[in-house]
């Protein structure tokens, strides 16, 4: 039983690390801000969840378990709110998503 929990938590920790790393690579690879938000939310949702669930399996029935659940719930709520706030602030400040920029360039070319 102990071994099964260990193996499960290893799988979860490995999976979480993989998704976090994928998100960070996406943060560097994607071309503009609004695409990068999606890569960031990758690390915030499944990456963080899998790592914390992997830790929960190791915690056992101690006080660490509800604390980890608390961290998980809070990081999910705060992650969505922060992404939304960043996207909205960026749009308000005049930063435009890529497809609109392409549309404008096309229109300008037609006017020329």
């Amino acid at each position: 039983m102990e071994l099964m929990f260990d193996i499960l938590s290893w799988i979860f920790l490995l999976g979480g690390s993989f998704f976090c790393l994928t998100g960070a690579v996406g943060l560097l690879r994607f071309p503009e801000f609004f695409s990068r938000i999606h890569a960031a939310s990758l690390t915030d949702t499944l990456g963080a969840s899998l790592i914390l669930i992997g830790l929960m399996l190791q915690a056992g029935w101690k006080l660490a378990l509800p604390k980890l659940i608390l961290i998980l719930v809070f990081s999910l709520l705060a992650g969505t709110t922060a992404s939304h706030a960043m996207a909205k602030a960026a749009l308000k400040s005049g930063l435009r998503p890529l497809d609109q920029e392409e549309g404008r360039r096309k229109r300008e070319r037609q006017e020329d």
Binding site: S41, T45, T81, H84, L91
Partner: peptide, 14 residues
């Protein structure tokens, strides 16, 4: 709106 943002690949802006 929060569910849309939580799902990677879609972000609700406004």
């Amino acid at each position: 709106a929060n569910s849309i943002t939580l799902t990677p690949g879609t972000v609700s802006i406004d």
